[in-house]
Design a protein around this nucleic acid. Sequence first.
DNA 1: GTCGCCGATGTTAGCGCTTGCAGAGGCGTC
DNA 2: GACGCCTCTGCAAGCGCTAACATCGGCGAC
Lengths: 346, 346
Amino acid sequence: MTAVAPVAEEGRRRGLNRSRMADVARLAGVSTATVSRALRRPEIVSPELRGRIDEAIRRLAYVPNLMAGGLASARSRTVGVIVPSLINSFFSETVEVMGERLAGAGYQIMLGHSGYSIEREEALVASYLAWSPAAIVLTGRHHSRLTLRRLLEADIPVVEMWEHGERPVDMLVGFSHREVGRAVARHFSERGARRLAFVGAALDRDLRAAERGDGFLAESRASGAQAVRIALADRPQVATGGVGLARLVQEHPDVEAAFFSNDVMALGALFECQRRGIAVPGRLRLCGFGDLDFAGVSVPTLTTVRPPRREIGQRIAEGLLARFEGTDPGPAVLDLGFDLIERESG
Amino acid sequence: MTAVAPVAEEGRRRGLNRSRMADVARLAGVSTATVSRALRRPEIVSPELRGRIDEAIRRLAYVPNLMAGGLASARSRTVGVIVPSLINSFFSETVEVMGERLAGAGYQIMLGHSGYSIEREEALVASYLAWSPAAIVLTGRHHSRLTLRRLLEADIPVVEMWEHGERPVDMLVGFSHREVGRAVARHFSERGARRLAFVGAALDRDLRAAERGDGFLAESRASGAQAVRIALADRPQVATGGVGLARLVQEHPDVEAAFFSNDVMALGALFECQRRGIAVPGRLRLCGFGDLDFAGVSVPTLTTVRPPRREIGQRIAEGLLARFEGTDPGPAVLDLGFDLIERESG
DNA sequence: GTCGCCGATGTTAGCGCTTGCAGAGGCGTC
DNA sequence: GACGCCTCTGCAAGCGCTAACATCGGCGAC
């Protein structure tokens, strides 16, 4: 009985048979400090020892305990990233690119989704901070006071992405949604449309979409055009786009061009037009946002705005890595712009 | 000069002003052990102390250091999840549901994407294990030997999802893709189609799609129908579906019904048919897989197979939580089935 | 030849928690 | 009224690393 206890104890203590840095050190005939250095900054360890250590790591299939390392160094090679939704492929692509770039430098992403709620964002930020992350990346600029306070106190790089403006918490990488709306309004105006509409969904939560709408309406009106706004309460799905179009033609049958808050909505509108025999762009011009996958091949192909999805992720990763390594991270605020892609629909 | 050093030291030691459990303990007038217990198992601490501790935590805005906790307890409240792609909304929804459910119980997801590569999966598993996760969730059943070995050695719950079969590593939650293919073949046969086709993309990597195709072809041929397989090298995007359709009508102009490897591909095919004036389902029946957002509102609406996207996530979370808490986790292998949704396209 | 300096390695003291064990009351039982 | 037992709390020993500091040669400069 007494002989068994230590074994059970041992089992509890460290997984079943996971080796520790001390095991590697013993096998390589060095101290743990040297193993640690060989892992973190190989260049300061002599090639001979490095070789012996690598061999020992391989033989033992050693996997470092990042929690121990993180605790000792008071930071982790983790970046907390919060996007509104994972289902939406806008952000997915940004996250994929960012993740790949960071992973290449040994950093890991902890990804969460806020569901467009700043309360959920607050909870996520709190739980990420509990991991002493190397940085936090948030979508947008709208955060709770407590979130802001915690972020500031954490004293780590904070990136706000997918928007543009002044006085960010720390870094800001994105583009101006207001300008997107303006550009679409100008685009329609230039093509002679004078009765315009913006159709959006869940605009009370998706503030970026709302801002695109605001920019669109402001610019439309400034140029003397007539512009209406249709806001739907549902989530921005394909079906919602169809509903939006139905409301549009019913309430404002004379509208000549409509800016849908994103391509998913616009696709729904496209289908609904087809169903109702509304000629696009003949009778109604349509523009979306996102330049999603299908925009280039739908019938008709969809005029839209292409956001710098991948570039946002890449620039953030680069900026962050520069900060981590103490090199020049470049400007704190980066406006990456966007492209209006003119296709058949308008 | 000398007076400054300790301050800098202090700064390095523990963020700028992040409070520790010891601070909470002092303020509440208890030991850190009691604070720890109040956090982990509140029911074993007296209501009075619990109240004082909660108050102290609130006043100090205390956020526990999970790395310290994880190190001390040799485990973390983290679940590593690996999906092939984030862009694909199939998995996103599963992950969202699973994440919400787990978050409710205090567990966090570390999400990564393998890009359908088992080498990347191997690297991700290794880096997740370095965090002593409470469990690992993988997509599919195809893993490298080393991944398997590490998973087994880690001695934690492992879930393979989105597939079905025998002898899983540990738990398996999903459905049979082969059966999906069979069901679609039967569906087409029942409607009198005798010349069938499966069109897929990147089938060498997306093994689930390949299996749907295999099941489809096997069942078609078993029922005496003629069935061809078109495999495209590109990624499964909307445009790829169009390319697939073009090849299909060129190489096999007499095909009456086609099963596209997923809805995204099928949508591309739908557009291409429209462009070419091919009547759907009149001249060609089309079926997809996934029941994505647009399937119910496209023109024509898309016949497809609905996988239990959300249920997979929910069941995994429940099974895992049961394992964590030592209660009955239910069967290790769960076949959640699927629904064939008949719509206009076929 | 001696000195000092620098690069490579070892020593050691924690990082902030968790948890086994011990101790301290409080209460029911005989 | 003493005893045992149970509940609640404190004590203290780590968890597996990192990094500041100490140490030890070797080598160039004078």
